[in-house]
Amino acid sequence: LKPHNLFSLPGYKIFRNDRPDRQGGGVLLAIRNNIICHEKLNRTIENNEGIAVQIETPLGHLLIASIYIPPNVRIHHELLQQIYNLNNNCLILGDLNASLQSMGSRRTNVKGRQLQQVLDEGYLQCIDNDLTTYARNNYEEKIDWILASQPTILFIDNVETEAPLGLKEDHKPLTFNLNMAADNKPSSPRLSFNSKSANWQLYRKTLNELLSNIDRTKTITTVEEIESYATTLTECIS
């Protein structure tokens, strides 16, 4: 995408973050004309390119972002954090050039470890599947990602990849359903927990500190003492 290159798509509003001073494209979002929307972010931070548009849904405002991070560039947490801070109900799509084995890639690269750091912070989660999104010369890998905050991540299903479009990089288009109808709220708040995004090291440290305050030498003989002890343990765990 260059400023002098015009692009239009019938029936869609186009939002773009051009790349005027380097080779290649940039990022773009196309939003259907019948959807109320407006641009919220158009930034490039240390070659991390992003465009974000807020749309209206039956469940409120949703921020949709498209990002691109080149292979030799570090994932810049500030861009992701800025998107989330604009609207903590957000959906981020993009080619991060990050492979993370624990989330479905064949291996983990440096960018994958950087992505894991983002996930460990807990404000974003990713679709956990083993669909490869890049195919070239008998090599396939998952390097394109769907990231989302809660509860948006719960409304995503039927994630699939399609055949490459024949472009130079041979990325596979990702398709999915986003079911945000007003009557399609999660049936239980329990669905909002994702153990993979938890900071278990911090949890273990905090739990040990709380358990160390319990007098384990005390003899428990009555029902009331048992119930009190059980309540204390429950409070430590939760």
Rank of each mutant, 00 (worst) to 15 (best):
Lys40Gly: 01
Met180Asn: 05
Pro151Ile: 02
Val27Pro: 03
Glu160Cys: 13
Lys196Gly: 05
Ala181Gly: 14
Leu62Ala: 03
Arg74Gln: 11
Ile67Met: 09
Ser102Ala: 10
Ser228Lys: 13
Leu233Gln: 05
Pro164Gly: 15
Glu46Ala: 15
Leu93Pro: 04
Ala198Glu: 09
Asp157Val: 06
Glu121Leu: 14
Ser238Val: 08
Asn87Met: 05
Asn179Tyr: 13
Arg136Asp: 11
Leu79His: 01
Asp120Gly: 06
Val27His: 01
Ser197Asn: 08
Gln150Val: 11
Leu63Gly: 04
Gly25Asn: 08
Glu160Ala: 13
Asn17Leu: 13
Glu160His: 11
Asn89Lys: 13
Glu46Tyr: 15
Trp200Ser: 02
Ser187Glu: 15
Asn129Cys: 12
Leu233Asp: 01
Ser195Asp: 08
Leu80Tyr: 04
Asn199Tyr: 02
Leu96Ala: 01
Leu63Trp: 00
Ser238Cys: 10
Arg22Gly: 05
Val27Gln: 07
Leu100Arg: 05
Tyr68Arg: 04
Arg74Lys: 10
Pro164Phe: 14
Val223Glu: 11
Ile64Met: 06
His4Pro: 01
Arg107Ile: 09
Asn208Cys: 13
Ile14Leu: 15
Asn177Cys: 14
Lys40Asp: 06
Arg74Gly: 01
Glu78Thr: 14
Leu96Ile: 07
Ile143Lys: 00
Phe7Asn: 06
Asn72Glu: 12
Arg43Met: 10
Asp95Ala: 07
Ser212Lys: 08
Asn177Met: 13
Leu100His: 05
Ile31Ala: 06
Ile220Phe: 07
Glu169Gly: 11
Leu1Ser: 13
Ala30Arg: 07
Asp170Gly: 08
Glu209Val: 11
Pro20Val: 05
Ala181Asp: 15
Gly11Leu: 08
Arg16Asp: 04
Val118Gln: 07
Leu202Lys: 12
Ser8Tyr: 10
Glu209Leu: 14
Lys13Phe: 13
Leu165Asp: 11
Leu115Trp: 07
Asn34Gly: 10
Asp144Pro: 07
Arg190Met: 09
Gln81Cys: 04
Ile214Tyr: 01
Tyr229Val: 02
Pro173Asp: 09
Thr231Lys: 11
Phe176Arg: 04
Val27Gly: 07
Leu207Met: 06
Leu178Asn: 01
Asn208Tyr: 11
Trp145Glu: 00
Arg190Val: 04
Lys218Asp: 00
Lys142His: 03
Asp18Trp: 03
Glu140Ala: 13
His171Trp: 14
Arg204Lys: 12
Gly50Ser: 15
Arg107Tyr: 12
Ser8Asn: 10
Arg19His: 09
Lys196Phe: 00
Leu131Tyr: 08
Ile146Ser: 00
Asn109Gly: 03
Arg106Thr: 09
Glu56Ser: 15
Ile36Phe: 14
Glu141Ala: 11
Arg22Gln: 15
Leu207Asp: 07
Thr222Gly: 08
Thr57Tyr: 06
Ile14Gln: 08
Glu162Ser: 12
Leu1Asn: 09
Trp145His: 12
Asn33Ile: 15
Asn194Lys: 00
Ala230Asn: 11
Asp144Trp: 08
Ala52Trp: 02
Asn179Trp: 12
